[in-house]
Simulated assay, not measured.
Amino acid sequence: MEWETYRELIASAEYRSNVPNVFADPDHFAAAIDDMREATDVDPEYVAGIDALGFIPGAALARDFDAGFISIRKGGKLPIAERYRLADDCVDWTGREKTLELDRRMVPDGERVLVVDDYVETASQVRVAVDLLEEAGAEVCGLTFLCALQTEETRSLDAEYGVYSVNPWDEA
């Protein structure tokens, strides 16, 4: 699907991009997953989705890659013992502090993990997700998004891991 179509679909909200509009239509959803897969130039053993909208394309991409799925949850959502919990804080695009958590048992040591989210503005959540996965022993092999805004942080992540995005970076 052309980026212009995605832009029209996600621009329906007044204050933020409305990516669930893409997921609501079966043809648009299938096209988004196909386009994200096509943009991604790695072969992971696992795909990690960031809570909550990253779970949708993340799980679909995990199936496409024949890979396992790892959920990176918002703080307080993991029903596990503290000894298994990895957590870190970040400031999201609204300026609010939030916590992301990971169950360390979900991450096999040394396995290649692709991190997926829907839309990246500041990349602070992505940075925390990468840090948690690496702390658990994963090898982060790339980052895939429907849309990644080009910022200093996303350029830094691109240099370190490779950022794969459906949108052309000069049009975000």
Rank of each mutant, 00 (worst) to 15 (best):
L132E: 08
E97L: 01
Y84P: 06
R85D: 09
A81G: 12
I70E: 08
L53P: 03
K77P: 14
I80L: 13
R83G: 08
P79A: 00
I72E: 03
E97M: 08
G76I: 07
F65W: 10
D118Q: 03
V120F: 03
A129Q: 04
V47D: 06
L100R: 07
I72T: 10
C90L: 14
A60V: 04
V107K: 09
D92H: 06
D117H: 04
V42D: 02
A81D: 10
G49W: 00
I70G: 10
E38W: 13
L86V: 05
A87S: 15
L102N: 04
K74F: 06
V126F: 08
E135D: 09
R105K: 11
V91G: 11
E82Q: 12
F69Y: 15
R85E: 08
A62L: 11
I70M: 01
T94Q: 12
A48Q: 01
G75M: 10
V126K: 13
A48E: 00
G75L: 05
R96K: 13
R83I: 13
E82P: 02
G68L: 04
D66L: 01
G49R: 00
S124F: 06
G54T: 08
F65P: 03
A48N: 02
V120I: 15
E45A: 15
I50D: 08
K98H: 07
E134V: 03
I50P: 13
E135S: 11
G68W: 00
V115W: 09
